[in-house]
Design a binder for these strands. Structure first.
Length: 131
DNA sequence: GCCAACGTTGGC
DNA sequence: GCCAACGTTGGC
């Protein structure tokens, strides 16, 4: 079982919207590394939902409910998407500032590659973030 | 609104 | 294959 972090600007697609939708196809990724991370996802893997820009915080936990397949919105046919469903809303969001303040989280791909929209979360990092 | 970091494009 | 120019992301 692997863990991931997926970013969205709340003005584009928010956690509240996902909760309302029950599930969604994570389309629109146009970056090879993010795409490769989605290709590596397995059914049942869990992922943080991170609000970029306005919020800058992890706000919920999702699970992968459908494997990678081509993204119909990508005319080049290079990029794909997975389907996700909400698992849990965090009672207290974990802010970027809090993540940055924790030395043990300094190696998170989120911090090292700030522009990557789909990143890997190590198991130790995941556990630290949810307790 | 600014700008650093990074990815992509295209000329050579 | 290199690299300058340009576009985008996302934190501040």
């Amino acid at each position: 079982m692997a863990y991931w972090l997926m970013k969205s600007e709340p003005s584009a697609y928010s956690w509240a919207q996902l909760v309302k939708d029950k599930r969604t196809s994570w389309s629109g990724v146009r970056n090879y590394q993010a795409n490769n991370n989605m290709k590596a996802m397995q059914l049942g893997d869990e992922a943080f939902f991170y609000h970029s820009n306005e919020d800058r915080a992890i706000v919920g936990i999702m699970k992968i409910v459908k494997l990678w397949r081509p993204d119909p919105t990508d005319e080049t046919g290079k990029f794909g998407m997975v389907d996700v469903a909400p698992v849990k809303t965090l009672t207290k969001p974990v802010t970027l500032a809090e993540i940055k303040a924790d030395k043990r989280l300094a190696n998170m791909q989120l911090l090292r590659q700030s522009r990557l929209s789909v990143s890997v979360v190590a198991e130790e990092e995941w556990k630290k973030l949810i307790d």
